[in-house]
C-alpha cells in the first residue's frame, strides 16, 4: 500500500492543489486522488512531485506491505 505525505508537504509550502498540478503537469483532481491514496503515481510523477518540494521520493511516498 502506498502512503503519501503529499498534503502535508503541500500545506508546509502553502501550495494549492491547482498550483502543484500545474507545476507537475497533471490535472488538479489527480493530486486530490493521490492525496487520498486512491491512485498510485507513475515513477515520473512521483519524481516530479519530489523535485517540486526538493525532497526524495521516499519522503513523500512510502510503500508498506499489506498484511
Amino acid at each position: 500500500m502506498l502512503k503519501t505525505r503529499l498534503k502535508e508537504f503541500r500545506a508546509k509550502h502553502n501550495m494549492s492543489q491547482e498550483t502543484l498540478a500545474r507545476l507537475v503537469g497533471v490535472r488538479r483532481e489527480t493530486i486530490g486522488h493521490l492525496e487520498r491514496g486512491n491512485y498510485n503515481p507513475s515513477l515520473k510523477l512521483a519524481w516530479d512531485i519530489s523535485k517540486v518540494f526538493n525532497v526524495s521520493i521516499e519522503e513523500i511516498f512510502q510503500y508498506t506491505e499489506e498484511e
Binding site: 492543489q17 488538479r28 483532481e29 486530490g32 486522488h33
Partner: peptide, 14 residues
Amino acid sequence: WNIRRYHRKLKELE
C-alpha cells in the same frame, strides 16, 4: 450541470 458536478468533486478531493 457537468461543470457544477466537476467543481463539487474537486471540492470533495480538496
